[in-house]
Design a protein around this nucleic acid. Sequence first.
DNA 1: GCAATAATACTCGGATAGAGTCTGTCCGAGTGTCTGGGG
DNA 2: CCCCAGACACTCGGACAGACTCTATCCGAGTATTATTGC
Lengths: 168, 168
Amino acid sequence: MKMSEGVEWALHCCLSLSWVDAGEAVTATKLAAFYDLPAAYLNKQLQALVRAGIVSSAPGPRGGFQLARGLEEITLMDVVSAIEGPRSAFRCTDIRHRGPGGAFIAASETSAGGSRIPCAIAQAMRAAELGWRKHLAAQTIADIKTVIEDRSPNSGDDIRHWLTARSS
Amino acid sequence: MKMSEGVEWALHCCLSLSWVDAGEAVTATKLAAFYDLPAAYLNKQLQALVRAGIVSSAPGPRGGFQLARGLEEITLMDVVSAIEGPRSAFRCTDIRHRGPGGAFIAASETSAGGSRIPCAIAQAMRAAELGWRKHLAAQTIADIKTVIEDRSPNSGDDIRHWLTARSS
DNA sequence: GCAATAATACTCGGATAGAGTCTGTCCGAGTGTCTGGGG
DNA sequence: CCCCAGACACTCGGACAGACTCTATCCGAGTATTATTGC
């Protein structure tokens, strides 16, 4: 169970984009060079953020990516969901209903309407994962930005200058 | 990010093993037949549980697997960790230190001793994942067994009879 | 000098290969059981 | 009848392929810029 590296990339990119002036777009090539990442693949991850409505994109010269909404409106959950997809990590395949074992619970645990009572194991796993998602949804990128600006107040200016410089 | 199916299998197997009498071993073949799973692959997952000390194994005739400790001592976290390994889902590759961007934070965020201050993003992700792990560690398989026995009090007997029958 | 136009360079976006991990399968080492023979 | 030895059948355990997802790359569609040409 490994989370895609694209999540880390996307989070850092959102953070970096927050320092450039509104209306200014940064290209995927520039962001990739800044972090020494493969440009085309980073572009792919940024596309996922576009589809999720987190950043907006513009083609052509002077084009690129910029945040589509305020940092306070972007939670870690939003970014993770955009990159990893909406499906949960634990996926119940209902093995309790397969094979001879299924016969034992079919009578006693199947509700009247025919809809099956969810597996207790799946419920427990889902509850734990929900806790994880709640933690992610409770933190916005603005919170992280605050931490970083506390640590090094001038890094934001440096990053903005580097990303908005015309010649690389 | 998809969790291995082996986790679901292992959880169900632990639950099933809890109903057979102590000292009685159940073979991987039997458990696989019960849930209609590939026997050899299920055996592989059970081996992981053995390495983690959750179940014990015995070779030869009358051999098989049985729980190595009480259900109250087996948390969901134990099983997940046994199957999935100890590594966390989110893995910080420190892209903030790679490329030109690394130069900006090297001076301001590196502590005196040379040890780097952990990335704020990695910290946030790790905190969320820790919340997930805490949820998993807080629930034991005994808890799940209680839920199931509440729903269908006689299923335990059925499962024990099926698993301990000599001829399939 | 100014406006319209065509060529241009640059960007994102999706379609296309390669690597790593998860899933599934096979065979060998080891152990308890059963059968046959001897005392 | 009881004990012992040998063969046997059964189990786990690790080594070996196949499938799927993640990673990485390439090329085409579209757009703002820029140079050129005519007025």
